[in-house]
Write a protein that binds this DNA or RNA. Structure first.
Lengths: 131, 131
DNA sequence: TCGTCATTTCGTATTATGCCGAAATGAGAC
DNA sequence: GTCTCATTTCGGCATAATACGAAATGACGA
């Protein structure tokens, strides 16, 4: 029954739901998630760990960055759960803001995700030159 | 997003999963759940409240007893979630024991659920003559 | 090999959650 | 109305979860 409980815990926290909602839109590297959510890196990392342990996401490395994506095997289930709650989710301010910031963030991808030398258009949390 | 989080919290605790697993088998009054799970009344009640607030169950009164049943509207979703985790759930000892005790308990229903005067075949938690 | 960052872990304070027994509540039976 | 129980809330403690900044880690590029 452990898997089910891990799934429950993963869904039972606002920050984690926000992460999952973002990942349902696109595969994202951690800095993109962080910038979209305006949460500290350490906090985000903890939640990502929880979500990972629940088997909801997989990670892969692209150059220097780790990309998170929904585990294909659970995506259908996750979709059904989210769609069931769709009416409430659609009108959620926080999720809305996250999505908006994500879109702005994704617009910068052509200039290189998290790439160096973009001219500091967007400053990442710890002073890096992340896109 | 609150509904989704409540759903998550409801699924994110072993005791509550055990309750839901029992309710997937049959509509049950609280004393039947308690006897099947061997957990204190106050503890059980707290979890039932959580599950109720998540909108996963409805209650109805039968004579002196309150019967819990899965909310018809969420049952399909719940089924899909449980079926997704089926392999792990099927081999879970605790759930197995709960189900076995439930079966024993249901066998006594003909003698009247929680009825007085059965001769104390089964003693309920707080000294009553509950079936 | 070294430097640079993205990412994770550590230390800690705060808050939430789980458990139980005992007391309170409340619905039916007489 | 009163009695009887099933059911819920209360008080108190123990454990676990969340948050953050700062320090540690670790992978890639040069």
């Amino acid at each position: 029954m452990n898997g089910l409980i891990l799934l429950g815990k993963a869904l039972g926290d606002p920050t984690r739901v926000r992460v999952l909602a973002l990942l349902r839109r696109a595969d994202l590297c951690v800095c993109e998630i962080a910038d979209s959510m305006e949460v500290s890196m350490s906090t985000l990392s903890t939640h990502l760990q929880t979500i990972r342990q629940a088997g909801l996401v997989r990670t892969s490395r692209q150059q220097k960055w780790v990309t998170y994506s929904l585990e294909p095997e659970v995506r259908p289930l996750l979709d059904q759960i989210f769609e069931f709650e769709e009416p409430a989710l659609k009108s959620d301010r926080r999720l809305e803001r996250d999505a908006q910031r994500l879109n702005e963030r994704l617009g910068l991808r052509e200039e290189g995700c998290c790439s160096v030398g973009v001219g500091g258009l967007v400053k990442s949390k710890n002073g890096g030159t992340c896109a």
